[in-house]
Every structure is written in C-alpha cells, then in structure tokens.
C-alpha cells in the first residue's frame, strides 16, 4: 500500500509513473532542472498536471475540489527549500499557524504543542524569535517544526540540505532518520546531495530530463549499470564532445 503517481505528457515531466512506499524514506534524486521540484509540487497539490493522476490512499488528488484537497493537505507537511517561514510572525506563531487554523484547541494547549514541536527539532527557547534573526539551519528546523505541527502522515522535503554547511546538513539528515524511526512517517526528500542520500534513503527514485531512469533500493542503485546513474554517483561531468566543425558552427551562430 502506498501512493501512486503518474503523469500524462508534460514538457517537464514525461509520463512519469512511480509508487512511493508508505512508512519509508523515499529520495527523489536527479540533476538540476530534471523536474524533481516540479514533481514534488505536483504531489503536494500545488500544481495540476496536464493529464494523468496522483493517487493518495487510492484517491485521486488532481480532480479534487479545494475543500477536499485541504483535508488531504492537513495530513501532509512540507519543508520548502528556503523554509518559507512567514517573516512577519515569531517562530511560535509560525508553528502555531496550522494548529490555529485547523483545530479548535484553546490557546494554552496550542502553546504546549508549539513548545513540543520546537523541542523536537532542538529549538527550545527560540519561541519569541523572528525568522530573520535565525541562521539558515535553524530556519530549516523551524520550518520542519511547522510542517509537523499537525502530526502529518506524509512529510515532504524540498532540498533540505541546500545552502547548509555539511555539519548542519548532517544534523538535519539525522533528524529525518529519527522522524521515520520514531513516528513511522512517510517521508519524501527531493535532493541532489549524495552523502545525505546514502544516509537517509530507503527507496530511491531517480529522474533525468523528466523521465524516471531508476527506482528501487539503495543497493540496487549502486549496482545499477545505467551510465547516467553511474555518472551521477561518481560525480562525473557530462561529456560533451563535438568535432571542430561542430564547434565552428556553434561559434558562427548557425
């Protein structure tokens, strides 16, 4: 049982069909511009595919009305690339926002929940800070606390380690691992950072130029003979060789 997504024809994503297993960490891997962020935006319902369907628990979210979709979204948490905290609010208010909007809990309960979530990501004592007063890694962790505010079943990460130093990035990976082990959440991570892939992934989906070129476990990925995958894993640059004639044609602008 899991969620199954597929697409029809699209410029960026060409008829992708994958299944994301439940209760595991799935990493969506791929070079820049291969469509992995677009893919994520489709799964979380921000973009609508031209054709095709995205099934979550057997229900297609592409045809849903806003109200139904919001019910599904309550079960999801998303950590965006830049954390996307609301700059006009304190950390506590940011984390409390989804709780205030979707539950009728009283203020003292909300405050307790907020402190619990912030403690979970190691940000106790920062309740009254504004996002602009925090470092990049702290913002990411605060974004994670907000994503988990409603105890989601699915957690999505868009490039969690982008723009972080290796130590902070490793700390975030550790946190992701802990979430999966402790809360049994279904986690989907979009990234191109190899060290974190090997650390957190249970299942890997690799995209290249809008197509799925691999899906399977980490060991399968290492054993794969696909030259594109090997290039990615061994960090080889793309070989672009052309003859002197071609080069002449390029610089002549023909």
């Amino acid at each position: 049982m899991g969620l199954r997504t597929h697409y029809g024809d699209r410029e960026i994503l060409k008829s992708i069909s994958v299944t994301i297993p439940r209760g595991k960490t799935t990493v969506i891997l791929g070079g820049s511009g291969c469509g992995k962020s677009t893919f994520l935006k489709h799964i979380i319902g921000l973009l609508k595919p031209t054709s095709g369907s995205i099934l979550i628990d057997g229900k297609d979210i592409t045809g849903m009305k806003e109200a139904e979709l919001n019910e599904v979204r309550k079960r999801m948490g998303v950590l965006f690339q830049g954390a996307a905290l609301l700059n006009s609010m304190t950390l506590a208010d940011n984390v409390a926002l989804p709780i205030r909007e979707h539950t009728g809990l009283n203020e003292s309960t909300i405050q307790i929940m907020v402190r619990m979530k912030l403690d979970l990501v190691g940000l106790s004592g920062f309740e009254g800070f504004y996002p602009s007063q925090l470092s990049g890694g702290m913002k990411k962790r605060a974004g994670l606390a907000r994503a988990m505010a409603l105890d989601p079943e699915f957690l999505f990460f868009d490039e969690p380690s982008a723009g972080l130093d290796p130590v902070t990035a490793a700390g975030l990976d550790e946190l992701i691992l802990r979430l999966r082990n402790v809360f049994r959440m279904t986690i989907v991570v979009v990234t191109h950072e190899l060290p974190s892939v090997f650390m957190i992934a249970d299942y890997v989906i690799m995209l290249d130029a809008g197509e799925v070129i691999f899906s399977g476990s980490l060991d399968d990925l290492r054993a794969s003979g696909n030259p594109r995958i090997q290039m990615f894993l061994e960090r080889k640059p793309e070989q672009e060789s052309y003859s002197p004639d071609d080069y002449f044609r390029i610089i002549a602008g023909e």
Binding site: I44, E66, R73, G82, A84, L85, L86, N87, P98, R146
Partner: peptide
C-alpha cells in the same frame, strides 16, 4: 512572500 515560497507554504498548510 510569493518569491520566498511563503504563499506556497500557506497553500500546503491548507490556508487560502
């Protein structure tokens, strides 16, 4: 807010 994905974040939290 749109440029910083904050609007997207609101949508994914189910907030219009």
């Amino acid at each position: 807010m749109k440029a910083a994905e904050e609007v997207d974040a609101l949508i994914t939290m189910g907030i219009n």
